[in-house]
Design a protein around this nucleic acid. Structure first.
Lengths: 208, 208
DNA sequence: AGATGTGAATGAGTTCACAGCT
DNA sequence: AGCTGTGAACTCATTCACATCT
């Protein structure tokens, strides 16, 4: 097996941006584009586009540029966006509910297919495209829906427990909105999102 | 004026983490801690703690460590968290409503004090601690509440307009949840948050 | 003795500049 | 001629290792 040198988040996130830019160009019926012009149109760096792509092969035609549709397709495949990824949300509070109905989580390959909550009063209520279930249903839901991604929007005290339930159910990736640190588990990728920290960063610049 | 070499987001975000860790130690009545032990207890790097702090002065006592309460206070001041920062939310859809009631946005120095939405049916409705107002009220709301931070949770097509309204109203920092790029304005700091991109990053690791 | 604060070394990420292909 | 792909240079960030202070 070739020694896969882990791709950085920075690169991956830029690839997402490139793909979105290409999608827009497709809508404008642009057939071909140079890194130069792509960079100019979307405020990116031409060299960086080429370097980022270089990590995964050769995508362009020298002297010409990139075939928009073809590059979009290849990036989409590369990012794993050519097949469906079902999502389960743990904790249907304000944030969980918002994400359940969030466009970005229910578009293209992504779909929120289930959600669980501790609160018996919430169980059975419809949110977005699913009905809230009890936490002990996670395993069944994951099995039946083939969900791969879990979203954690529970209170911090319930984070560890919910995380382990997701892992046991066979979830392969977790988006963690709680401030609780989660212990790494083999085969499960965790991405932490800290909404509060963004405010604190802004506050710094506002000064004391 | 001394040439202020812009502090990186990475450093600032770590300072937030250090502060939270110290707060927890305060609750546990720990009076003093070394970078070594702080790192060990919260999965951080001791050298990095010292380097990060070094950018802002000397905080410790050699041979002893750091006074927990004192360092917490100094970090809190440094991050601008010792005074109140009022927040206005533009766009009270699912995400806007969730953030309006989100603990992290209504705790310590932060408070969501106002929200506006285009939709006439929403105007007048109570959300969290405020009543939804019309977009043309932004200027008055910012003036009356002294809000400094604006949160953008509008549809992408309304992003630019809402942003400019916030800027005109005198907002000094913007947390942008839309995918729309915002043109920089002098004196206004923008922090973009892309929730969708996190899913795409996870999808990459799940493979095609 | 024991921990901080910091120059020096290393590593990660970006930009430059150009060889090589179309 | 023009643009990609890429080694080399550079900048930013982290880690090492130790002089310095209590």
């Amino acid at each position: 097996m070739p020694n896969t040198p882990e791709v950085s988040s920075l690169t991956l996130n830029r690839l997402s941006i490139y793909l979105r830019s290409l999608r827009q160009l497709e809508e404008e019926r642009v057939a071909t584009i140079s890194s130069q012009e792509l960079a100019h149109r979307f405020h990116l760096s031409a060299t960086q586009i080429r370097k980022d792509l270089a990590q995964f092969g050769e995508f362009g035609i020298r002297g010409v540029g990139y075939d928009v549709a073809q590059l979009a397709l290849r990036l989409s495949r590369l990012l794993g966006l050519e097949r469906r990824h079902a999502i389960v949300i743990c904790g249907i509070g304000n944030l969980g509910r918002a994400l359940a109905e969030y466009w970005g989580f229910n578009h293209g390959p992504f779909a929120v297919v289930a959600g669980v909550d501790q609160d018996p009063r919430k169980i059975g209520k419809r949110v977005g495209t699913f009905v809230i279930a009890a936490p002990d249903e996670i395993e069944r839901l994951v099995r039946e829906t083939g969900a791969e991604i879990g979203v954690l929007t529970v209170p911090p005290s319930a984070a560890r427990e919910s995380y382990l339930a997701l892992v046991d159910a066979g979830i392969r990736a977790v988006l963690n909105f709680t401030l609780q640190r989660l212990e790494p588990r083999p085969g499960v990728r965790v991405k932490n999102v800290d909404l509060r920290i963004n405010l604190e960063e802004l506050a710094f610049h506002l000064g004391g």
